[in-house]
Write a protein that binds this DNA or RNA. Sequence first.
DNA 1: CTGAAAGCGCTAACAC
DNA 2: GTGTTAGCGCTTTCAG
Lengths: 344, 344
Amino acid sequence: MKSSTLKEIAEKLNVSVSTVSRAVNQKEYVKEETRERVLRALEEYNYVPNEVARSLKMKSTKTIGIVVPDICETLFGMIIKGIDQVVSPQGYSIIVSDTNENKKNEEKYLNLLYQKRVDALVLATVDLKGTKAYEYIKSGIPVIFIDNIPALDIPVESVTIDNAKASQMAVEYLIGNGHQKIAVIGGSVDETTGYERISGYRDTLRKHGIEVDEQLIRYGMYKEDDGFRCMQEFLNNRGQSAFSAVYVTSEMMTFGAMKAIRQYGLRIPDDISIVGFDVHDKAGLVYPSITTVREPEVLIGTKVGELLLARLKKERKDMCQLEEDNKVLLDPDLEIGQSVRCIL
Amino acid sequence: MKSSTLKEIAEKLNVSVSTVSRAVNQKEYVKEETRERVLRALEEYNYVPNEVARSLKMKSTKTIGIVVPDICETLFGMIIKGIDQVVSPQGYSIIVSDTNENKKNEEKYLNLLYQKRVDALVLATVDLKGTKAYEYIKSGIPVIFIDNIPALDIPVESVTIDNAKASQMAVEYLIGNGHQKIAVIGGSVDETTGYERISGYRDTLRKHGIEVDEQLIRYGMYKEDDGFRCMQEFLNNRGQSAFSAVYVTSEMMTFGAMKAIRQYGLRIPDDISIVGFDVHDKAGLVYPSITTVREPEVLIGTKVGELLLARLKKERKDMCQLEEDNKVLLDPDLEIGQSVRCIL
DNA sequence: CTGAAAGCGCTAACAC
DNA sequence: GTGTTAGCGCTTTCAG
């Protein structure tokens, strides 16, 4: 039951390997009769093309590397799914690597994928220096960033949501419901996502003539604990800096914040309104349902897939480096739940 | 910034490719001095081994194919993570394919992975015939099944939980809390998981001298809607067949069932107790928290990884087919929440 | 239309 | 210790 090689088929049929190859790839001119003879033999001898050999020859592995901090996060799962959906019909496969949010791991995986000669790389980096990714780009391998975009001095391609807009939507929704004193729990401002979300918050407040109260801004590292802790601080500090609503910029921190509020004996949205980020309530059983900004995950994936395919096709002719940045910004969604009270 | 080849390095150093190769692979005897000279050159000329060429020669791609119905399901995400954790240190990469629960897709992916010559396959199949997987096994490629195990007439290897035991744990927990009339929502009995879970339920009731009431058994296809519908039927039928608790054998159906109960104006656990399966409440915000049987996901992954590594190592010497089934059964966990009322 | 031959980058006998 | 050589299985000129 071992699958045979072109050469074996060729021998059995007394034709040359090149003829068989041509028949297999439906290329060039092969006499209809021989083609059929070959095709039949392929079946009979159970031929399956060896993509490894083809890769070596063609200098293309039909393989795309995806490196994410945590494959279990719904966001990344969906993105991977989206990418797979669009690239697999073209024969591309996806190698995923889960770095566990660890820089060292990321580097190891990036090296491994380089050895395996992936045709392209999709990267949700935790290394803001992006040193390793730099090497990929330099050697002409298409790299698309999702989530964070590292600071590189060469043109990069990325697909992310418009984080500033996301914050704007969240904050304006709160303002629209009468809230003026809006606290925020941001992520690390060293990262583009964290930075953009917080500045979006600030800008939107200002735009609506609301003064930014630095006491109402806290930062966490995206974990549930961080959300919990920041919320506690807000709550303890409520005497000085009152607020009626809070905007939390990540899913787990949103959960943490909600728990802090509950533990304080306060109710959502009666006492405090909350808008989350990327909250996924698969069960639909969280009460009250959470109003949240949300990335269009699958769309990100399919967009990445399309970009990839486009570049992979072009790359063939001219090993073109990107001339300039291509930062695709997708619109976030605002999913309305019942966690915001209208106080107008 | 293109990485060079062994040959190029060899030329620059005026040594042969094999010497360079030996130095790279730290193999055999190379004079310490030459080794160092080579190693330095590798750095200088930015050499990165071409794994494709090596794969062709070695007939091993250091690549493992994983095919799952839905990568976004926490269960599969965790399993993939677990596998990756144990195989990547050995230089293996993982190609994932998301079949979207579709048999045709599954076949397509299985073919693609075969072409790519993955060294092994991990498969959560939706094709109970397992026709395609059969070919892998026949051609000597290690296959490990997770989740469902197809009916094949050759020895197979699998890592799953002990589904009968899972049901036993769920049902005995309910019985221990005084429940006697226990309804169940099962999955498709054509699949091993569905079948085993339901028979585990039956056996456990009998073992405790409780008669099985067929009216209290319903089947769904694992979707939320199915859980909702089955629960409705139970509820509508409650006049004839009363019950105080329900055991639901999948996560989404559990959510559906809970919604049906709520919509009926009944409370959990006051009116009806519920035990779920594989319920993940990442937020920890579902109220009441759900008592659920749970697969030890990461453990499944790491176990699969170890099995894989073991076979991949052996496979080198003797292309040994499995002599007999190797079905690894892992113990499920019972996570106690507040969805079961004690009526003793 | 078909075949011969080179070569993708690497490993592993086998010589020297 | 090191070099030579023969492929791994495939694609692709270039001849015929």
